[in-house]
Amino acid sequence: MNGDGVIEENVAQQETHDTQNTHTPQAIYHDSSQYRHWRFSAEELHEKRAAANGKAVAVTRAGWDEEKELNPESSLSTSITPPSVQEEDDLIVYYLSQIRPICNLFQFPENVEATAMTYMKRVYLANSVVDLHPKRVMLTSLFLATKTVNTPISAADFAKYVGKGKISAESILDIEFLISQNLRFEFATHPAHRAAWGIYLDMQTMASRQSQQVLDGVYAEVRQLIRVSRLTYAELIYSPSQIALGCFSMVNKGLLDEYVGWKKTEFGAEEPNANAVEGVVNLINIHKSRGGLKKEAVQDIDKRLKLWQDPSKVEGTAMYKKKQEQAEQEDYEKRAKRQLEVERSNYDGESVFGEALPALKRSRTNEGVEEEQEQEQEQNGSQQVKQEI
């Protein structure tokens, strides 16, 4: 991955240009979440991938140590070599390459393919294949992309045709929210093939334009190169237009130079960043020189990946049982807490006016006391009369 400092240089140039001419309209891309949150240098990408790999390996090792303490007879072996960062990338690229055939199966538009691949690469900026297997991420990313680019399909139909009965809709939906979280719920993407389409249309309006047949042939090759670029981290380093320019440069540099000169003369466009264009070309050439990853190599990495798992995720291990018990205990405590809240709510509803008051004794007024005194006097007087008689 080349192009170190290209992003910073581009940002500096853009800020300088904006300062000089505040009336120049800002490109839509520069207001996007992709521009603000999903661009990195080659070093930053390597650091992120290495950090994700290191964290996953450390968690698994710690889990194995705890498994040995709980079950000394455990068959787990720390002698297994964990997948390296490069092996993780190879596995990710292999499953990225499986997206196109699936899209062809469903006849999805190219935007679905490009978006799904973007989602998958973004997920693995902070995750390792040890934590999330690329096959699961690939399928869910593709299903999510069908919705975000308005080409929806039901999860049941998607699982039926992709897995041929071996994949359930639940397994695809299970990590959909997790992937959305890793994407920061920023689903809009700016794929390079749309930038290439714009350049192709522009070239048809040049005064000294090539024949339509030549332009069509160039554009067809450019599209193929852009598909190759999706199997690299190019879109996480360079802008869509830089990737498109790099692909045109690889197909017909003379035509691209003519196009750039025409844009500068007629529209006052700036010179493209030569380092960025060259960086895109290098990434594509490096990927092409490797000749693709053989299925046998992928199977070997995948086999070791299955062995290199956190024991708390492997059924039958002491760690798995412990995790299940903890989950059951937490669930019990949550249900008990909810039941207590319900009982308190019912009690508060019944005693909304407070507790029942005790019966109060009837109070006597002054008038009542005087009446009683008069009655006593009358009774005493009548008794005296009876005695005299």
Rank of each mutant, 00 (worst) to 15 (best):
Y238H: 01
V222A: 06
E235Q: 10
G254E: 12
A244Y: 01
E270P: 09
A244G: 10
R227T: 15
L255N: 03
G246I: 14
N275H: 15
I243S: 12
S239R: 04
E270Q: 06
E221N: 13
T232H: 02
R227N: 14
F248E: 07
L256E: 05
L225D: 07
E235V: 01
T265A: 15
Q224K: 11
R227D: 13
E266V: 06
K253L: 09
A276C: 13
E270C: 01
P272M: 07
G246F: 00
S249V: 03
L245F: 13
S241K: 10
S241Q: 09
D257N: 08
L245W: 14
R230E: 15
M250P: 14
T232E: 04
V260M: 00
I226W: 07
K253Q: 14
I237M: 07
L225T: 06
V251N: 08
K263T: 12
L236D: 09
S229F: 03
R223W: 02
S241N: 15
I243Y: 02
Q224S: 15
L255V: 02
A234Q: 05
Y259I: 00
E258N: 14
E266T: 09
G254H: 03
N273K: 14
N275A: 15
A234K: 00
L225G: 08
V222K: 12
V251M: 02
M250W: 04
L231R: 01
E271S: 00
Q224R: 08
C247N: 07
T232R: 06
I237A: 01
L245A: 14
W262S: 09
V251Y: 02
L236P: 02
E271D: 02
P240D: 11
A274G: 06
V222P: 13
V222R: 09
G261W: 09
A269Q: 09
I226C: 07
Q242S: 05
S241V: 12
E235M: 07
A269T: 09
K253R: 14
G261I: 08
N275T: 10
T232M: 05
L245H: 15
P240Q: 09
S241E: 11
Y259T: 05
A234H: 01
R227G: 13
F248D: 03
L236I: 05
R230T: 08
E235K: 05
L256K: 08
F267A: 00
G254P: 14
I243D: 04
W262M: 05
L231W: 02
F248N: 08
V277D: 10
E271H: 10
A276I: 13
V228N: 06
Q224E: 08
S229W: 06
E271I: 01
E271N: 02
Y259E: 04
E221C: 13
T232Q: 03
K253V: 05
I237P: 01
E266F: 07
N275W: 03
E258C: 13
E266H: 00
I243P: 03
A274Q: 11
L236S: 01
S249I: 06
